[in-house]
């Protein structure tokens, strides 16, 4: 929207401005079609469906709040929430810490920086793909690469992905491994910090650690905040990895039953599309709530330098 306002402020006659507005709307038209046809329309439809009993094959029947009250007693839903929350709360901080750490290292002026940047960024591009999930399944299997590596040190491995106790951890590792995209954003943020600040600090005799705590971290908080919001939203929606690694079951013993995987099972495994729509909206509410809390809390720790 801001670009439209800027267009308005452009110098020239009123008529010329109107002409330009028209052109702008014309260019935006495909985006509007997408927004209303593919995003908002179906979203509203699914909101309606969340109050119905709908099995895909017969027309939906209104069922009031049934789907919503059913959530209270749905043990698998509670289990999937547990899995998803522990995944978000463990993997996102770990991933951001790793991303920041490597960004700091690379920012020190490593030779061949573009090369490292690309190499570290690569997992972010492919980490959510089916191919990587398949690779993960093989790597962490009983006869996988991980156990062979452990075997070199005389450690007896186990089926990491097929034991309920460790299956979720392997997916956390997979998410942490895709630290590349927050790292690139951190790198850009680090470049924004004026070097004069560091020079002044070292003249005053501040240690490296002190400089990091008093200059780097405060000035980087907007970037940390941005990454945090983005990665939390992203982590809540995890689907592909869990689907492929567990063959769509969320197993072993529901230990990788991610929220969106459960939603998928209800909708397409049980033809329970009304309930699945309600679940989708619950997820939207949860993610929305988290983002709102994040924004509210940001007042207390994010430092904007304007």
């Amino acid at each position: 929207m801001s670009s439209i306002n800027e267009l308005r402020r452009l110098p020239g006659s009123q008529r010329g401005a109107r002409q330009q507005n028209k052109a702008a709307f014309l260019f935006l038209l495909p985006w509007f079609v997408g927004l209303f046809g593919i995003t908002i329309g179906p979203m509203l439809a699914s909101l309606y469906l969340s109050f119905t009993d709908y099995n895909l094959l017969q027309p939906p029947r209104l069922s009031g709040l049934d789907n919503w009250t059913r959530m209270l007693h749905d043990e698998r839903l509670h289990k999937s929430l547990g899995v998803t929350f522990s995944y978000v709360f463990v993997s996102v901080p770990l991933q951001l810490a790793l991303a920041l750490g490597l960004a700091l290292l690379l920012d020190k002026g490593v030779r061949g920086l573009p090369f490292y940047r690309s190499v570290f960024y690569l997992p972010s591009l492919i980490g959510g793909s089916v191919a990587i999930a398949v690779l993960w399944r093989t790597m962490f299997g009983t006869t996988g690469l991980v156990n062979e590596a452990l075997g070199l040190f005389g450690i007896q491995g186990q089926g990491w992905i097929s034991e309920p106790g460790t299956a979720l951890s392997t997916l956390v590792v997979l998410n942490v491994w895709t630290f590349g995209s927050p790292m690139v954003i951190f790198l850009a943020g680090l470049r924004q910090i004026p070097t004069s600040l560091y020079e002044a600090a070292s003249v005053d005799g501040a240690t490296r650690l002190r400089q990091f705590r008093s200059i780097t971290l405060p000035l980087l908080t907007p970037i940390i905040f941005f990454n945090l919001v983005l990665q939390i939203i992203h982590a809540f929606q995890t689907f592909t990895q869990a689907f492929v690694v567990s063959g769509g079951t969320g197993g072993p013993a529901d230990s990788t039953l991610f929220y969106s995987l459960y939603l998928y099972q209800r909708g397409f495994g049980h033809f329970d599309m009304g309930y699945a729509s309600a679940l989708a909206w619950l997820l939207l509410l949860i993610v929305g709530l988290f983002t709102a809390v994040n924004f509210w809390a940001s007042k207390y720790w994010v430092f904007y330098d304007d």
């Binding site: 979203m43 439809a45 895909l56 027309p59 939906p60 969106s260 998928y264 909708g267 599309m273 989708a280």
Partner: peptide
């Protein structure tokens, strides 16, 4: 792979047309 949300969306569009045709 289609995300489940995309799939739900497809299902939703489909059902909306069903509601209309049902009448």
């Amino acid at each position: 792979m289609l995300s489940p949300f995309r799939r739900i969306a497809i299902g939703a569009v489909v059902s909306l047309s069903l509601v209309l045709t049902a009448c």
